[in-house]
Measured scan of single mutants.
Amino acid sequence: MTEYKLVVVGAGGVGKSALTIQLIQNHFVDEYDPTIEDSYRKQVVIDGETCLLDILDTAGQEEYSAMRDQYMRTGEGFLCVFAINNTKSFEDIHHYREQIKRVKDSEDVPMVLVGNKCDLPSRTVDTKQAQDLARSYGIPFIETSAKTRQGVDDAFYTLVREIRKHKEKMSKDGKKKKKKSKTKCVIM
């Protein structure tokens, strides 16, 4: 069974824990209790493949930012979460993405942009803004509501699919490099 290491990042209060708990335990946590770091595991079937999701729910508070490099190193894919009623959390996505790329030393890291709290009427981040940002990053965008469960499975499952595509691409690139290195030079 394939294991996928997913990391949920975003500013404090955007609903990272609520999304994760909704996926794992099928219930909505409405009281806000700032996370330092929590880890969850769940076995699911995605596109006919049974897999184990190892999900790291991270601290959004700035005082825990020193811990970010460590979990970013171990993560295979990242859910970059903002709240649709919090423009600052949307603007912060850029910083999370840049930090992930720096730590992973790669421009090509599996990510999904997630606009959470889409059940709320007080939207300050337009869907088109988020779609445009995701398009500019070359990553999928999904709106979710941890409260109603809308888009929750889709967000995590899409990230797994992005990781699969990335692994497939990397193995193809690896095979191309191996083929090239088999060419021999004969000096007579």
Rank of each mutant, 00 (worst) to 15 (best):
T2Q: 15
T2H: 12
E3R: 02
E3A: 03
Y4G: 04
K5M: 14
K5F: 03
K5S: 13
K5I: 02
L6N: 14
L6R: 01
L6V: 10
V7M: 05
V7P: 02
V7I: 03
V8D: 08
G10I: 04
G10S: 06
A11M: 10
A11L: 11
A11Q: 06
G12W: 04
G12Y: 06
G12T: 04
G13S: 09
G13I: 11
S17D: 00
S17P: 12
A18S: 05
A18N: 03
L19Q: 12
L19D: 14
T20L: 13
T20R: 00
T20W: 00
I21S: 07
L23A: 12
L23R: 02
L23F: 13
L23P: 00
I24V: 13
I24L: 09
Q25S: 08
H27A: 08
F28K: 00
F28V: 00
F28A: 00
V29H: 09
V29F: 03
D30S: 09
D30L: 08
Y32H: 07
Y32E: 00
D33W: 13
D33C: 07
D33E: 03
P34S: 00
T35D: 00
T35I: 01
T35S: 00
I36G: 00
I36C: 00
I36R: 00
I36F: 09
I36Y: 01
I36N: 00
E37S: 00
E37Y: 03
D38Q: 01
D38W: 15
S39E: 04
S39G: 15
Y40M: 02
R41S: 04
K42C: 11
K42M: 15
K42N: 06
Q43H: 03
Q43D: 01
V44L: 02
V44Q: 10
V44N: 09
V45N: 10
V45S: 04
I46P: 02
D47T: 05
D47G: 06
E49P: 06
E49T: 05
E49W: 05
T50G: 06
T50N: 02
C51K: 02
C51H: 04
C51L: 04
C51P: 05
C51W: 09
L52H: 08
L52A: 04
L53C: 07
L53G: 02
D54I: 00
D54A: 00
D54L: 00
D54G: 01
I55R: 00
I55V: 08
L56E: 00
L56M: 06
D57L: 00
D57E: 01
T58E: 00
T58Q: 01
T58V: 12
A59R: 00
A59H: 15
G60L: 05
G60E: 03
E62N: 14
E62K: 05
E62T: 07
E62I: 13
E62Q: 06
E62F: 09
E63Y: 03
Y64L: 15
S65I: 13
S65P: 15
S65D: 14
S65T: 12
S65C: 07
A66S: 04
A66D: 05
M67H: 00
M67L: 04
R68P: 04
R68D: 14
R68Q: 15
D69C: 02
D69Q: 03
D69F: 00
D69S: 05
Q70L: 00
M72L: 14
T74C: 15
T74V: 15
T74M: 14
G75E: 04
G75L: 07
G75H: 02
E76D: 12
G77T: 07
G77H: 03
G77Y: 14
G77F: 14
F78E: 13
L79H: 01
C80R: 02
C80I: 13
C80D: 03
V81I: 11
V81P: 09
V81M: 12
V81Y: 05
V81C: 12
F82S: 09
F82M: 10
F82C: 11
F82H: 10
F82K: 04
A83I: 02
A83G: 13
A83L: 02
I84R: 11
N86R: 07
N86G: 12
K88A: 07
K88C: 09
K88E: 15
K88L: 12
F90C: 11
D92A: 10
I93R: 02
H95N: 13
H95G: 11
Y96N: 03
R97M: 15
R97Y: 15
R97L: 15
R97Q: 11
E98K: 03
Q99R: 06
I100Y: 10
I100T: 06
K101W: 07
K101I: 13
K101Y: 07
V103P: 01
V103Q: 09
S106I: 10
S106Y: 12
E107D: 13
E107V: 12
E107R: 10
E107L: 11
E107T: 13
D108Q: 07
V109D: 03
V109C: 09
P110W: 00
P110Q: 01
P110M: 03
M111K: 03
V112H: 01
L113F: 12
L113D: 12
L113M: 10
V114M: 12
G115Q: 07
G115E: 08
G115Y: 10
G115S: 09
G115T: 11
N116T: 15
N116L: 15
N116S: 13
N116P: 05
K117L: 15
C118F: 08
C118R: 10
C118M: 13
D119M: 02
D119S: 07
D119I: 01
D119K: 03
L120E: 13
P121D: 14
S122E: 12
S122P: 09
R123Y: 09
R123D: 13
R123W: 07
T124Q: 11
T124V: 10
T124C: 11
V125E: 11
V125L: 08
D126Q: 08
D126H: 08
T127E: 09
T127Q: 09
K128G: 10
Q129F: 10
Q129R: 11
A130K: 09
A130Q: 07
Q131L: 09
Q131Y: 05
Q131V: 10
Q131A: 09
D132H: 11
L133P: 06
L133S: 09
L133G: 07
L133R: 06
A134P: 03
A134G: 13
R135H: 10
R135Q: 11
S136K: 08
Y137A: 07
G138R: 14
P140T: 05
F141A: 01
S145L: 02
G151D: 09
G151V: 09
V152P: 07
D153H: 04
D154M: 09
D154T: 08
A155G: 13
A155L: 05
F156I: 13
F156L: 08
F156G: 02
Y157C: 10
T158R: 12
T158L: 08
L159Y: 03
L159D: 01
L159V: 12
L159W: 05
V160I: 11
V160Y: 09
E162L: 08
E162K: 12
E162I: 08
R164T: 13
R164Y: 07
R164L: 06
K165N: 11
H166Q: 12
K167V: 11
K167T: 14
K167N: 12
M170T: 05
S171R: 03
K172T: 14
G174Y: 15
K175W: 07
K175N: 04
K175F: 13
K176M: 11
K177S: 13
K177F: 04
K178R: 11
K178I: 11
K178N: 09
K180R: 11
K180N: 05
S181R: 13
K182N: 05
T183D: 14
K184N: 07
C185R: 15
C185V: 05
V186N: 15
I187L: 13
I187Q: 15
I187M: 15
M188E: 15
